[in-house]
Design a protein around this nucleic acid. Sequence first.
DNA 1: CTCTGTGCAAAGCGTTTGCAAACGA
DNA 2: TCGTTTGCAAACGCTTTGCACAGAG
Lengths: 137, 137
Amino acid sequence: MMIDYASLLKKSDLKATFQRISILKDIDTKGHSSIDDIYDEVVKVYPSLSLATVYKNIILMVEKSVLVEVPIVGKKSKYELIKDDHIHLICTQCEEVEDRPYNRNTDTIFNTISQEQNFQLEKQQINLYGICSVCQV
Amino acid sequence: MMIDYASLLKKSDLKATFQRISILKDIDTKGHSSIDDIYDEVVKVYPSLSLATVYKNIILMVEKSVLVEVPIVGKKSKYELIKDDHIHLICTQCEEVEDRPYNRNTDTIFNTISQEQNFQLEKQQINLYGICSVCQV
DNA sequence: CTCTGTGCAAAGCGTTTGCAAACGA
DNA sequence: TCGTTTGCAAACGCTTTGCACAGAG
């Protein structure tokens, strides 16, 4: 958190507009945000924001590998900043997503499977769906 | 494969129509199909099929836990028959999805993480994205 | 100053809905 | 026969697009 979003954008040949920085800040602060989450949040501090601008920028930042799409069963995708591989705990009740680090074996397992299948691994997404501690009454 | 789809449907209080059986057969044969895959296939043997019927039935069969949605980064979801936990190898080139069984450690890892986080695990989806052996020139 | 990015409104599509007719049990 | 399911066409809502203006570098 508290990354220099402007540098992050420039590194990817994207101009550091207030809209883009606000989008990144929202995602970074929350961890995972949907398009609507982002729009609702950023429009508060920048009322003239257009939803189309959010769409355009998310698409662009995913292409540039600044963001990663996290598709979720039965809901709209969320987006997160690119980061080390990790596990998602996705609450089916409150829809929050929490990250947990891989343990030492996790990587090995997936690499082994990929090698056995002669599969050229590019990206991995481990999603555990369930009820988070907060929602368990 | 070659399951008794009619019984499967009746077990879930769904009438065994030709449309539903054909949808299940397509998914079971291919392993994983998108809505459009299914429509394109079934309409061949049942030309009066409506796309709306496919949508309605997929939604229904997911609710009844006959099918499971597999959301995929940057593409439309695919659907599979419900089955034991497994890993998806998703080819980013040809879009094929292949299943691989969990090895002995996989379950342990996810159960451990869930317990540590007091997370009530309901469902898990492990997706490995990359290039399948066929597409590696 | 130049080229990129934004906002707006319209267009485009995938998905859902309502209803009469057809069908399964 | 009765309740469910289907097909059609319309409605919906999310996403994308084109273009003139604004803004970053």
